[in-house]
């Protein structure tokens, strides 16, 4: 078990973001969290990567913080750096400070970065200032950084939110084809069913269903996205 949640609750003031959730996630599972905005998907990811503590309950993660790669909804990139350096930031846990410094002058591991960017379809941006890119390009730079980091557990918050359907498929294929565990929030059930093994539906901070992807039917999804509570 790489992640275990036991009766986890998280409040922000009065608001209940995650409400008594229990989950077991095995290594190498590919899990999609789906649900409407405000369902608690992002909070759940932040509880797992340790940037939030639960108000009640236990979160156990069998990976050090540095072994978790997070693709943030806002990307958390450094706009002032060139793309190559943002991608190479994925190496920083392994690099000495001296190597990190020298790479800022003459980028190290350039072929590797170029190959990853190529698979994401943005090779030509390698020397562009990250802040000058479009939202979809920046999103893929953030993904490239995690791919370079190559951690055993990847948490991806809406990793394809800014991509057109074709590129979204390309990126999801890339993320789901690596070894290791993947937990991703998604807005699109069709993509979740196609590329993930297990789907967890959330609504108002609670788990509505938790099934193998093949067993997720439109009938299950309807109550998830209905505006009035069922």
């Amino acid at each position: 078990m790489i992640v275990a949640l036991r009766h986890v609750t998280r409040r922000f003031g009065e608001r209940l973001a995650v409400d008594d959730v229990s989950l077991d996630i095995r290594a190498s599972e590919r899990i999609a969290l789906i649900g409407p905005s405000g369902a608690g998907k992002t909070t759940l990811l932040r509880l797992i990567n340790g940037s939030l503590r639960p108000t009640a309950g236990d979160v156990t993660v069998a990976a050090a913080r540095r072994e978790i790669g997070t693709i943030d909804q806002a990307f958390a990139l450094v706009d002032a750096l060139r793309v190559i350096h943002n991608v190479n930031a994925g190496h920083l846990a392994r690099w000495s400070t001296l190597r990190a410094l020298s790479s800022l002058i003459v980028p190290n591991e350039r072929p590797l970065a170029a190959a990853v960017l190529d698979r994401l379809g943005i090779r030509e941006t390698i020397d562009t200032r990250t802040g000058d890119l479009s939202g979809g390009q920046r999103q893929r730079v953030a993904i490239a950084r995690v791919l370079i980091q190559d951690p055993p557990l990847v948490l991806a918050d809406e990793p394809v939110s800014q991509l057109d359907p074709e590129r979204a498929v390309m990126v999801l294929r890339l993320l789901t084809s690596r070894d290791g565990t993947l937990i991703a929030c998604l807005h699109r059930p069709d993509l979740a069913r196609e590329y993930f093994g297990r789907i967890i539906g959330l609504r108002a901070g609670r788990v509505v269903f938790d099934r193998p992807a093949a067993q997720v039917t439109p009938a299950l999804l309807t109550p998830l996205y209905t505006v009035a509570p069922p």
Partner: peptide, 13 residues
């Protein structure tokens, strides 16, 4: 969170 060294964080972020 990635485990980058303190001075590397300073240099890159």
């Amino acid at each position: 969170a990635m485990g980058a060294r303190r001075w590397s964080v300073a240099l890159y972020a």
